[in-house]
Design a protein around this nucleic acid. Sequence first.
DNA 1: CGTTTCTTTGAATCCGGTCAAGGTCCGTGG
DNA 2: CCACGGACCTTGACCGGATTCAAAGAAACG
Lengths: 219, 219
Amino acid sequence: MTTQRLNLDIATATPAPIGATDWIPAGVRMQYAAGEEIYAQEEEADLVYQVARGAVRTTRLTSDGRRHIGDFYYPGDLFGVEAGPEHRYSAEALGDCEIIAVKRTALKHYGADGERLERMIWSATAEHLVRTQDHLMLLGRRTACEKVARFLLDIAERFGGEITTLPMGRQDIGDYLGLTIETVSRMLTQLQGDGLVEFRTCRQFRVLRRAALARLAES
Amino acid sequence: MTTQRLNLDIATATPAPIGATDWIPAGVRMQYAAGEEIYAQEEEADLVYQVARGAVRTTRLTSDGRRHIGDFYYPGDLFGVEAGPEHRYSAEALGDCEIIAVKRTALKHYGADGERLERMIWSATAEHLVRTQDHLMLLGRRTACEKVARFLLDIAERFGGEITTLPMGRQDIGDYLGLTIETVSRMLTQLQGDGLVEFRTCRQFRVLRRAALARLAES
DNA sequence: CGTTTCTTTGAATCCGGTCAAGGTCCGTGG
DNA sequence: CCACGGACCTTGACCGGATTCAAAGAAACG
């Protein structure tokens, strides 16, 4: 029975890197400018999104005005999949970007492609939970230095190249790690001073001593 | 097609209180003593569990020995459902407790009951993600006082009675909130001093000024 | 009752936040 | 081309909240 089949897929799905190599089979292609809102918190969640080009952040505001960033999404990543009927975070373009969107309730019309997309959606959700749990540990009992080290390592591994370009500013990093921009800035300076990373500009860096950085991040 | 049907259920499932009123339709009933391990981190995850009596915590150890508590589970709650093939947290009994376990891969033999259980599992997973996201915000940018206030309010609402008995010790609370036991203790003393709660023993408390407590927790 | 474990309290320290100032980058317009 | 303005980033000084270290007190257990 298909229900079980889907579920076995769920249970045995390898937590693939969030950058799925798969592209969603159909949907509308949309352009967003830097800072533009893709969907709002508490909006009805009937679309599923995939980053085609650029980067996206999901944010949430507390009643007292503090901002929290749920995650960052890069090309290939699915986002906007919610457990309930409405979005719990809003999503905004980090820079100019291109997004593919698909109506989730229309999947049944796509046949085999629809089923494949269903699996991609589940896989993304599972990976999302894993990332959220890991992030919990990071926020819970880590020093500012460890948080920033882990962040740089994560993003460097995500893009893989020699030089990594940060698509987000210091404020976003702070809201993601539960730190102020000043502390983020200080830690970056410190990591650079210790020779673990090197910044060419405030948006571009190279990892110099990966092992030392990883030791900080993993401790 | 059943795949879509399941998915619609997923999309529209109301984030029910983690205490499902449903009991899983079949399985083995097991007894655990205080502190006993139900499953271990990195163990293969082929069983799904439900608390029948007592309470359970899921924990994780970092390489440097710090402990993190994923969540607490109470009667009716499902736990042990993982996104990947193995458990990312270990689970231990908080006190003497009774657990029902079901082999997930055997669900197909249960017919309608199996399908119902599948929905319960998905619902629990979705609720789990929501709780984890909420917990992220709590750990990210909250003061110790706000964290403890929210914790007390949550657990009081979970049990609903006039007097709430904490099934866990201060160390567990600290590892859940990302605080030291000393800080937890101090905040409890302070909240009691401010007349928001009253402790009869270190495990039993009453909420005296719910609105004030909620204001602290929600801010 | 004595021992062990858990909890509370106190004092000192330190990390990160807050406030404030200065610096850099970049686009716009003189 | 340079001047100006604004957004973003860095740095410094100070402060406060949470941790750490230490010890006393309370509860659980045999």
